[in-house]
Design a binder for these strands. Structure first.
Length: 826
DNA sequence: AGCACGCCGACT
DNA sequence: GTCGGCGTGCTC
């Protein structure tokens, strides 16, 4: 790989590592860090935060340089093979942050760093197999069994990595075949460095030469090129060709004749695509001013966390912008987290309008290359403000003075997958380590943060008024039980809502209908025998999607044709019960044929740019009625919507999860807040089967206090967070019985620890039990939930359980995952 | 992760 | 008798 650097830098590195041994975390699922010897030629270029290529067992892998190490007595160290970066990829101040994450989330340190950095940059030795001449001859003349044939065909295309050989052979792959072929001399195996698919982008650039002999003797075309370069300075060859359509060979000829210089230049891949439109700060209200002063005076004075609790439309963003200005003036940097990609453009636009080019964005919508370039801009100080989704909490900002988490209650901050972290919590940890100020903003704070504020861990700052004295929407609750006996559309649209919609449309205003279930119908049931239609791989009810005329599983994405018969009795009469956004859209189009209807859910926004178009049409008033799932509740600004209809407020209430009430309250309060953000006051009609439930009652009055008092009592009584801490251990695998056995074994071991050791006496163990979603994508799932008042015994217990003598962290076909502070317990 | 070592069942 | 499956341990 060309990028391997071995030549010394000229600058003196700031974080040079002294001594002859360094501490390295490898990018592998390995919990320990490793000590390597530093060869003399590399001593000058080693810095904390650079990647190194290190021998690890039989191969070489990418590692992250964490700092100097003690020479261990009696251990002979292997030397570092190469340094992979000419500048560190993260500031050395972030090493303790990574270490904290590895400890707290019980995850290998090297994988934590890998998750933090842009992906696709690492290299490692991999086995690469290629066909020999005799192998090609023999194998092409023989008739082969199916898997052998497939492997041969793959190898015949050219050398293949082991992973590709495996994939081409399919499920029946056996490494013995490769060994045999190798012994017979048909294939050759070789260890080769592969990877680094993401790198900086360089394009041919044309530079004018300072002195050209006899310019008047040049051809007209050549003079035109030189004139352009003289006027505009050096430019990319592609741009030059666009400006002056000349033959591709002309510039090369000019370079050969010494009239211009042609050199590759690193360019920056721009993810914005839109120009910056500067704006002016509006005048702050008295309340905003006072909130700004409270938080502003804390800036630069060490770590502190604020919970900025402000009703929707109270102008939190404006406060973020003012705080950021103060921090930038103090020559520090700012990190802004938002829950999801769709909200980045709004937030980034606000920041770019005020701060210009020094804003970087980080989100999953970027290509690896764009993300890499944003990372470089942050590293070299061009970007001092970062706006991003949860993974942006790892942005390599040198000296953050302010970390903002907008809509802090949002579940999107929880990262699922291999490394499970909560970016909102990490933002506070990072702020503490950097002695920075953290601001958590929300109209409906999480119970966790509200609890922290009440205990004095966070400082609470409130914004009660909407800017311009806009009034909060009036919320009317409609009882759906009365409509239960109705037929057709009247079952889910009360007369009150219908009339309000008609009146709103007559006034040429916009309507938002919220229904937290996508697809066409809720449950699919066989009309003949009553058997529900379930996903083959997940045992979960499927949902009908009209557009694709298929049943879909919302958990694994599995889909089957709508012609499928009942799995029990074979009947083709499948009844569709309940309601999803897709069916609602169809019904609304029938009822209001002259209205322009749009739908916003995961299905209609899957395509890139689709969501932005929906939002733009809404802003341009091309849409009259917007139908959406919880996606519409996420902080988008809908200035012309004056009526919000909540079709069924109960959907999220019935989930088997202790946070169901909290989610419902947040969702309803957020959706209600979408009404009347413009000059016209809003109205909300909330339909429900449980009008007396306290979550719904509290959402109706937008009364967080009332909700908090009730909910916290409930959590206290049942011993749930935020009054306790939890760690969930999830056991999954394809072998149903083996998963169950492993879960029982772990449960036994865990139970014995708790019974035998006094320090674990306070830990409560729930389970092991089959997970509420027993099977997802053919993986059977069990879980073990551990609860305690404090985090420390829980961590110690899980560490003993997984890493003690005969630990269970890596057991063949069965996967054991640890989820610290789990959010989704299904 | 990937690789070696070591233990048991199914074949030449 | 050996071949090859996979559970277990290690990588500076």
């Amino acid at each position: 790989v060309k990028q391997v650097l071995t030549v010394a830098d000229h600058e003196t590195p700031a974080d040079r590592v002294p001594g002859h041994a360094v501490d390295v975390a490898v990018a592998l699922p390995v919990f320990a860090t490793f000590t390597y010897q530093v060869p003399d030629p590399l001593a000058d270029i080693l810095e904390v935060g650079k990647r190194v290529l290190v021998p690890f067992g039989k191969r070489r892998v990418t590692g992250y340089l964490l700092g100097p190490a003690e020479q261990l007595p009696g251990v002979s160290l292997k030397p570092i093979a190469a340094v992979l970066d000419d500048k560190p990829l993260f500031p050395s101040a972030m090493v303790p942050f990574f270490q904290w994450i590895a400890d707290y989330y019980i995850h290998p340190l090297g994988e934590v760093v890998q998750a933090a950095l842009p992906s696709g940059i690492n290299i490692a030795d991999q086995m690469v197999y290629s066909l020999t001449d005799s192998g090609r001859e023999v194998l092409s003349s023989q008739s082969l069994a199916a898997p052998e044939e497939k492997v041969f065909l793959a190898l015949n295309q050219g050398p293949c990595r082991l992973s590709r050989v495996k994939r081409s052979a399919g499920k029946t792959f056996s490494p013995a075949m490769l060994t045999t072929w190798q012994q017979k001399g048909w294939i050759a195996g070789e260890r080769r460095l592969v990877g680094a698919s993401t790198r900086s982008k360089a394009v041919p650039y044309v530079f004018p030469m300072s002195e050209i002999p006899d310019p008047h003797r040049l051809s007209g075309a050549r003079r035109k090129v030189l004139a352009l370069l003289a006027q505009e300075g050096p430019m990319a060859l592609a741009d030059l060709r666009r400006r002056s359509p000349s033959s591709a060979n002309l510039v090369r000829a000019m370079a050969r004749d010494g009239q211009v210089q042609l050199m590759p230049k690193t360019v920056y891949r721009d993810p914005f695509g839109t120009a910056i439109i500067p704006d002016q700060s509006p005048e702050l209200t008295v309340e905003q001013q006072s909130a700004l002063e409270t938080i502003g005076t804390a800036l630069g004075k060490g770590f502190e966390t604020f919970l900025l609790s402000g009703v929707t439309g109270s102008g939190k963003t404006e406060i973020y912008l003012h705080l950021a200005r103060r921090v930038i003036d103090q020559h520090k940097t700012v990190l802004v987290l938002v829950p999801e990609i769709a909200l980045i453009s709004q937030m980034a636009r606000s920041f770019r309008a005020r701060f210009g080019e020094c804003v970087a964005v980080l989100h999953s919508g970027l290509s690896n290359g764009e993300r890499f370039d944003q990372w470089q801009r942050i590293l070299n100080g061009q970007a001092t403000i970062v706006v991003g989704v949860r993974s942006a909490v790892f942005a390599p900002l040198a000296d953050p003075g302010l970390i903002i988490v907008d809509e802090e209650h949002d579940d999107s901050y929880k990262q699922e997958g291999a490394l499970r972290y909560n970016a909102r919590d990490l933002a506070v940890v990072r702020a503490r380590q950097c002695a920075a100020v953290a601001v958590l903003g929300s109209a409906t704070p999480s119970l966790q943060s509200a609890y922290n504020a009440r205990r004095g861990k966070y400082r609470q700052v409130n914004l009660f008024e909407r800017v311009d004295n806009r009034v909060l929407p009036r919320i009317v609750v409609e009882d759906l039980t009365a409509a239960r006996e109705e037929q057709g559309v009247r079952r889910f649209l009360t007369p009150c809502l219908m009339e309000a919609m008609q009146a709103t449309l007559d006034r040429k205003e916009q309507v938002l209908l919220f229904l937290n279930r996508r697809g066409f119908a809720g449950t699919l049931v066989c009309a003949a025998c009553g058997e529900p239609m379930r996903c083959d791989r997940c045992d979960i009810s499927m949902t009908y999607h009209q557009k694709s005329n298929a049943y879909k599983c919302h958990y694994c994405g599995f889909s089957r044709a709508a012609a499928t018969r009942c799995s029990r009795c074979g009947s083709d009469r499948i009844k569709r019960l309940g309601l999803g956004t897709e069916k609602l859209e169809a019904k609304i189009r029938e009822l209001f044929p002259r209205a322009a209807v749009a739908r916003m859910d995961r299905d209609t926004t899957a395509r890139k740019g689709a969501l932005l178009k929906i939002l733009k049409d809404l802003r341009d008033r091309k849409t009259d009625i917007l139908i959406g799932t919880q996606m519409v509740a996420k902080g988008h600004d809908f200035p012309f919507i004056t009526l919000v209809g909540i079709i069924c407020a109960d959907l999220s209430l019935s989930l088997p999860d202790f946070r169901a009430g909290e989610r419902t309250f947040q969702l309803l309060a957020q959706v209600a807040g979408r009404a009347g953000r413009g000059q016209t006051p809003g109205r909300v009609i909330l339909q429900t089967y449980n009008p007396d439930h306290f979550s719904i009652e509290a959402a109706r009055h937008q009364d967080f206090e009332a909700f908090y008092r009730q909910e916290i009592e409930f959590r206290k009584a049942l011993g749930y967070p935020p009054l306790t801490r939890m760690i969930q251990i999830r056991i999954s695998g394809a072998d149903k019985a083996a998963v169950a056995r492993m879960a029982e074994t772990l449960g036994d071991r865990c139970g014995r620890f708790i019974a035998d050791q006094a320090r674990f006496r306070s830990v409560a163990m729930l389970g092991p039990a089959e997970a509420p979603l027993q099977r997802i994508a053919d993986q059977y799932r069990w879980q073990l939930l551990l609860k305690d008042r404090d985090a420390a015994p829980l961590h110690l217990l899980v560490n003993k359980l997984l890493f003690g003598r005969d630990g269970y962290n890596r057991t063949g076909r069965i996967k054991i995952q640890v989820d610290v502070d789990p959010v989704f317990l299904m």
